[in-house]
Each structure stands twice: as structure tokens, then as C-alpha cells.
């Protein structure tokens, strides 16, 4: 059902979703090229049926899960979230998806697990961008277990009630609305529960610029640009910059996850 989420309701009230074209024609998905238009141009080559997701590591039921079996046991709901790119632009996306916690509980998280590692498909025949060593392929990401289990963290399978387009990470991608967009890894083929902080692609590429946490934080600059403000997409040539919100506006829900942590050191 298209039910909003109680915890995030206040932050979502005023949100006006971006146009379908903004969301689906302006993407960072370097497996299909580094230009914003490349994913929309080339991602149709990605085969998303059939699709299996390997869930392994510290889980009770490690297995290759068929996408349709996952969907059968999950409840799809709509979540309208702010999306803040580390490049200092932003949009609002009406995702459809389910809570990651539900998926992890399906596999049965074992008690010693502390982190969740994710991996994107790597298909050189279907992904023209992976010919170039822009990043160390495949793309990998990770979350602390409490971040992964947080009710705001979802696996998105749709946008505006339609199947999620390939360029947005079909058939299933992570969405962590209080972190920079690159944490929300696309087209997931593997989820591993572990007790070690997993490596993440942008951190491997440039540890000085991209930390493991990558929480949206207007007070911690990217070494090459300020994160204090952002340009919302969809306003044309004369769109005004707006101040960036701590935790992308989800502080009330997630700030407690980081209590006592130095967010400048753990950026």
C-alpha cells in the first residue's frame, strides 16, 4: 500500500517530488559511464530478469534468493525521501520499496554480525563504463548493522509506482536517505553480514574525500567543495541554492545512532 512512514512523516510533509525526467535522466551510475546522461542512454542493456541476490555471511539462511521470491514476502510501500548527492545537488524521490530490516530478518541475522556489505552486479558485456578503471569494480558499499536495520533504510524497487528504471538501480537498490547518494548502492547482487567494517568503493578510491559513514553534514566540507548548501534539481537556470540540513533533514530519526561519535573524524 502507499502508506507514509510515521517516523519520517514530519520531514516528508512539505516534500514535492521531482519530475520523473529529473529522477531518471540525471544519474550517477559509473558502470554505464561518468556523464549524468550515460546511465539513461546505456542501462537498458542490463538484464534484470532473472535476478538473484546472494545473502551470505553471518545469517541463519544463507542462499541465492530469487528476486521474485523476495518480492513475494515483502510489503511494498511508498517513501518520499530527500536525495542529497555528495556533489551538492539534490532531489526528492518518491520511492517504492520495503525496509531492509525485513529482508535481513528473512535471512536471519546472527548475533555476532555488526555490519552489512553490499555488492553491485558486474557485467562487462552490459556495462560499457566498467572498461575504464574509474573505480575498482564491482561497486561495493556497507552499513553498520544498526543503520541497516533502521526503519528509514529501504530497498527500493520502484519510483512513482512504476518498476525502478535500470539507470536508477533495477531491480533493487539501497536507499539511505540521511547519507550521501553514493551510499545507496544500485542493482544489488550480494548482501553479506559480517563482523568487520566492509570496504566501500569511494572510500577505496579516495579515503581523504569519502568516509565510511558519509552522513549528510553541512558542517563537514568535502575537501574540494563546501557541503553547507545544495542546488535542488529541476529549478532551471536560475534555481536558488538552499541550506543543506544535518542528516539531510532526518536528524530526529537517526541522530541517536551516532551519539558520542565525532562526526568530523567519522565523516
Amino acid at each position: 500500500g502507499l502508506v507514509g512512514m510515521a517516523g519520517g512523516a514530519r520531514a516528508q510533509d512539505a516534500l514535492e517530488p521531482n519530475a520523473w525526467e529529473d529522477i531518471t535522466q540525471y544519474n550517477n551510475y559509473y558502470e554505464f559511464g561518468t556523464a549524468k546522461e550515460d546511465p539513461a542512454k546505456y542501462a537498458s542493456a542490463l538484464t534484470t530478469h532473472p535476478w538473484t541476490v546472494k545473502i551470505d555471511g553471518m545469517v541463519d539462511k544463507p542462499a541465492d534468493y530469487a528476486m521474485e521470491d523476495i518480492l513475494k514476502s515483502m510489503t511494498i510501500e511508498e517513501r518520499i525521501y530527500r536525495f542529497r548527492c555528495v556533489e551538492a545537488w539534490s532531489m526528492v524521490v518518491p520511492w517504492n520499496g520495503f525496509e531492509l530490516a525485513d529482508l535481513l530478518n528473512m535471512a536471519g541475522v546472527q548475533s555476532g554480525a555488526k555490519y552489512v556489505a553490499f555488492e553491485t552486479a558486474l557485467r562487462p558485456d552490459e556495462m560499457p563504463g566498467v572498461r575504464y578503471p574509474v573505480l575498482d569494480w564491482p561497486y561495493v558499499e556497507g552499513l553498520r548493522l544498526d543503520e541497516a536495520m533502521h526503519p528509514l533504510t529501504i530497498m527500493a524497487t520502484g519510483i512513482y509506482g512504476k518498476d525502478i528504471p535500470n539507470q536508477n538501480g533495477a531491480p533493487m537498490r539501497l536507499v539511505v536517505p540521511w547519507k550521501y547518494g553514493f551510499k545507496s548502492i544500485k542493482s544489488i547482487v550480494r548482501i553479506t553480514l559480517t563482523d568487520q567494517e566492509p570496504p566501500t568503493s569511494w572510500n577505496k578510491a579516495n579515503a581523504r574525500e569519502y568516509g565510511f559513514y558519509s552522513n549528510v553534514n553541512p558542517e563537514v566540507s568535502h575537501p574540494r567543495w563546501s557541503q553547507a548548501s545544495e542546488r535542488p534539481l529541476g529549478g532551471g537556470l536560475f534555481a536558488r541554492r538552499v541550506p543543506t540540513l544535518m542528516f539531510n533533514g532526518y536528524g530526529e530519526e537517526v541522530a541517536s545512532l551516532y551519539e558520542g561519535m565525532d562526526l568530523k573524524a567519522n565523516f
Binding site: 525526467e21 529529473d22 535522466q25 540525471y26 549524468k36 546522461e37 545537488w89 542546488r231 534539481l233 529541476g234 532551471g236 537556470l237 534555481a239
Partner: peptide, 15 residues
Amino acid sequence: QGFTGGLGRDPVKGL
């Protein structure tokens, strides 16, 4: 192009 969408969804960066 910046006014008519020819520079993509972020015409400022495009220009």
C-alpha cells in the same frame, strides 16, 4: 539549450 532542456536536467552545471 540551457533554457529549453538541451543541457540536461541540471542546466547550470551543463552550461
